[in-house]
Nucleic acid binder design. Sequence first.
RNA 1: GGCGCUAUCGUCUAGUGGCCUAGGACGUCGCCCUCUCAAGGCGAAAACACGGGUUCGACUCCCGUUAGCGCUACCA
Length: 484
Amino acid sequence: MTSGTVRVRFAPSPTGFLHVGGLRTALFNFLFARNTGGKFILRIEDTDRARYVEGAVQNLINTLKWSGLDYDEGPDAPGNYGPYVQSERLDIYRKHVDVLLEKGTAYRCFCTPERLESMRKEQEKKKLQPKYDRTCLRLSAKEIEDNIAAGKPFVVRLKVPDGETIRFSDIVRGDVEFMSERVDDQVLLKSDSFPTYHLANVVDDHLMEISHVIRGEEWLSSTPKHVLLYEAFGWKLPKFAHLPLLLNPDKSKLSKRQGDVAVEDYRDKGYLKEALVNFIALLGWNPGDDREIFSLEELGKGFSLEKVNKSGAVFNVEKLNWLNFQHLRRKPDGNVLSMLKDHLAKTGIGSTRYSDAYLLEVIAAMRERVSFIKDFTEKSPYFFLPPNEYDPAVVKKRWKPQSAEYLKKLGDEFLKLENPQKQDYENALHRTAESLNVGNSELIHPLRLAVSGMGEGPGLFDIVSVIGKEETITRINSAIERIK
RNA sequence: GGCGCUAUCGUCUAGUGGCCUAGGACGUCGCCCUCUCAAGGCGAAAACACGGGUUCGACUCCCGUUAGCGCUACCA
């Protein structure tokens, strides 16, 4: 592998669902790879058996695929750096821990969780920084051997050097530095001999030749530990880029409780993947011009880490809704048709009840009025079922005592039409209004209410010509009954 | 508490010392269009957290304050 090749990874922990913040991290990695001609890798960080969730990995993969972020290497995309699931790499981590132990840059710790707990409490009480007190670092070789022989459980900790300033450069944030005194002797290998995130992450990033570590800002504070690990192993540091956090409306880190955080939630609510991806791309990044609507390809073209913001971004659903509208209206009729049919099947109206030609007419009429596929049935149910009730507010405003008579005449006029087109209905209405000596609107509004049950929607003659002459007359007659 | 990061309209953001009487987008409001509702067009309200420097000149650079957030586990 050439050193100039970009290799980035999305390394989620499978906790049940894909978090939108995770999707954003994945997206930025993906876009960076696309933009630089590099590789995008999916690696599953499942080193916490306490948080094991059945089916989480598959779910994660499905959701990532739904969003369109294809990866070059991953659990189900073989590459030369596998396996891509950390629980299948346990022996690798143990070997690397042995190296550290031998070098003396790590040490075994036999302290019990209870002791650690009380130590921490004590430190907090004294307002000291909670930090391992290095009791086990002072163990003699003999004591260590005896402990091991006695079968005492232990963890392996990183031996953080004293008095060092740990510096690294972050592409997003510039130079960052930490005093090593502030860095805890991090556990690298747990007592169940699984690695912690810190160890597994560094080992894998090195072994998988990851060139750029692009992850959320919550990792910035633990980066010095990682830097120390790279140094302990004698490995070259990757480039770091810590992305700003996605925030709740109250500016705290985006979480459940304050709305939906699972990508699946948005998918299930009818958001288009194009809209979601477009939206989260704009959270923390901008193209440098006034464009707002992007396809994945377009995002990939213009993306650069240098244009990533430093501050957190509130996840604002209003704009996402607008983007969904924008992307939906850009979809070809054929795509909208099949989505509409799926939706119709789900709502019980049935996908085969209406011809494609009919549905296409509905789509043409509603194009400018829907942000979601579900809006077709929610905003214009009258295309699928006759109104079973009439909006009371509109009834009050539009149905006058004489409306029944007007509608009767209008229905009679429509009845005479042969294979009418939109314009024919309109002409018929004009004729009727003239003979009645009333304004067109005296007929238009009552008719709209009669055929749709509501006071808003596409042009009246569009509605009428879509549902057809027979249905229109039927609905007129039902309405007349209701007005009487 | 400690450490770290951040700080432009309600929200997403442009802005890299003079182009800023701070631009765009979502949302909000008004007008136009109009058979209604949208869409579309036009317009409005709306921000540089504060205080010191540096400079001929700061939204832009430095320092401090304040605020917010993150981390502070044998979780990631």
